[in-house]
Structure formats: C-alpha cells, structure tokens
C-alpha cells in the first residue's frame, strides 16, 4: 500500500513532453499553478481542466498511474474539504447537530477540490516527464542569477534531485521495516490515535538510521567519482532551447491568455 506513492517519480514513456527542455516544463508547471488561481468564473475551470487533460494525454503516462499519486494526499484533501464545507457561512442547505452546510460551502469546497487535484496532477506531470537530474539542471539554470548573492544554487538543486531519487528507496525500506515490526507484534491499525502514533516510533527510528547510513554511502560514492560541487562541472545534456521548446512556450502563453480572458467572463 505504501509502495503506491508515485508522487514525484519519473515515468519513462518517451512522449513529446519527455523530450522538451526541462526549463520549459518547470516554467510550464509554474504557469499552470498561477493559472489555477487567477480566474473567478466557471469557464476558467473548463479551460484549466481541458488543458490538464490535454497534457495528461500527450504525456502518455497511464492515468491510473497518476491517480495513485493522489491517494497519498487524500487525508489532507478530506480535511480541508470538511473545514470548508462546514465553516463557510451562507444560505443553509442542511444542518447536522450544530454544524451547518451552506450552499456557498458546497461551491467553495467543490472549487477547492478541483483546484487541488489540478494542482497536484499538473505538477506531477512535470515530475513524471522529467528525470530528477534534468529537473536539477533546469532549476540550476533558472536560478543561476541568484549566484550573485552567493546563494548555493547548484548545491541546493543537487540536494533536491537526490532527495527525489531516494523517495522510492526509502518507501521500500519503510515497507520492510513496518512488516518486520508487524511480525514482532506491532499494531498499526489500532483505533486509538495515540496508540498508532506510538507504534510508529519503532518504525521511524530505524528508518532514520538507515537514511543516514545511505546518505553517508552516497556521499562516499559521489566523492570517489570526483564530485566537487558545481564549478568546472560539464553536462551530458547541455540545456539548449530547440524549436519545439519555443513552440511549447508559445502554447503556454496562449493558454495563460485564454485563462485570463475566460476568467473575466
């Protein structure tokens, strides 16, 4: 069940999106996030959702695979949904005990859910189609101007990409540790919340220990492969914009314009 976490994972399907310059995809994700929050009317939802469906289709990543990533944040979504549902004042639809659900509440919740799902799917399209290394390269290039302020751009980008690529390994490890503790009688399904939290301690401690050990091993491996930070380092895939990247930028701008216009209606 834990193995289902797919958020932030590369899915090689060789689509046109995979071949785009990673900078386009980072900017694209950013533009998409912005576009989700600049409109008011219903038409905006149609535009953003349509664009999302278009992206999912050309990414050639199976939709069922993408949905798996949503499962992990479902608790968070339900929680925010409930708060919105009950806390929005307005024309009451029905009342349970002291809690009232208003018409506005339903509307706000529905909007929020659509936005959240679009936000997560939109950004995960970027991570599905971009390897962590490409992502690092892109961020490094996009944030290069910050270097003037002695901001360690390369180092932070490197850390991000390593963190991303270690997610599946740590997830697997977590699964093994949980099974091992279950075999020793740990109860992760207890109804009482405090019991469940307590049961997690013997899982988290070994997980952290192993993560540190792995980090140490990886640092050694990087050292012995002559890693010495960003200076003097070359790239296998130097970032160069091609015609298709320019096209992608134009499509993105066009999309943003459409959302702005439709959002006003």
């Amino acid at each position: 069940m834990i193995k289902d976490i797919t958020l932030g994972q590369y899915y090689p399907s060789g689509s046109i999106l995979h071949k785009l310059d990673p900078r386009v995809k980072v900017m694209g994700a950013l533009i998409y996030i912005i576009s989700l929050f600049i409109f008011k009317g219903k038409l905006g939802y149609i535009a953003t959702t349509a664009f999302l469906i278009f992206l999912i289709m050309i990414s050639l990543v199976p939709f069922s695979y993408m949905i798996k990533g949503l499962k992990t944040i479902i608790i968070f979504m339900v929680f925010t949904a409930l708060i919105n549902l009950f806390m929005t004042p307005g024309e009451p639809v029905f009342t349970i005990w002291k809690l009232t659900i208003s018409k506005e509440g339903i509307e706000v919740t529905a909007r929020m859910i659509i936005r959240l799902i679009s936000l997560i799917l939109g950004t995960s399209i970027m991570t599905f189609t971009t390897t962590p290394n490409q992502l690092t390269d892109a961020l490094e290039r996009l944030f290069r101007p910050l270097k003037i302020f002695r901001f360690p751009v390369h180092e932070i980008a490197m850390m991000m990409s390593i963190a991303l690529s270690f997610i599946p390994i740590l997830v697997e490890e977590l699964d093994i540790i949980m099974k091992a503790q279950k075999a020793r009688g740990a109860d992760f399904d207890d109804k009482r919340f405090t019991k469940r939290v307590k049961a997690l301690i013997p899982v988290l401690v070994p997980l952290f220990v192993s993560a540190f050990r792995r980090a140490n091993d990886l640092a050694l491996a990087m050292d012995s492969r002559c890693y010495r930070g960003g200076d003097g380092r070359t790239k296998m895939r130097p970032l160069v914009y091609h015609k298709k990247d320019i096209m992608a930028y134009l499509i993105l701008l066009l999309y943003l314009a459409i959302v702005i216009v439709m959002g006003r209606l």
Binding site: Y10, P12, T131, P132, N133, S161, I162, S165, I169, R213, R214, D217, L218, A221, M222, R225, C226, Y227, R228, G232, R233, T234, K235, M236
Partner: peptide
C-alpha cells in the same frame, strides 16, 4: 542502491565524467 546518483542508467554513468569537466 547507495551509489546510484542518476535516475536513468545513462545519466548515472555520465556522473563521473561530468564532474571531471569533460
């Protein structure tokens, strides 16, 4: 598992030469 840096085989193999500035 602890010495793989790249997320594609090619990228991982290229890590060393990249560091050497080739």
């Amino acid at each position: 598992d602890n010495q793989i840096i790249g997320s594609i085989v090619e990228e991982d193999v290229g890590f060393g030469p990249e560091n050497m500035g080739i």
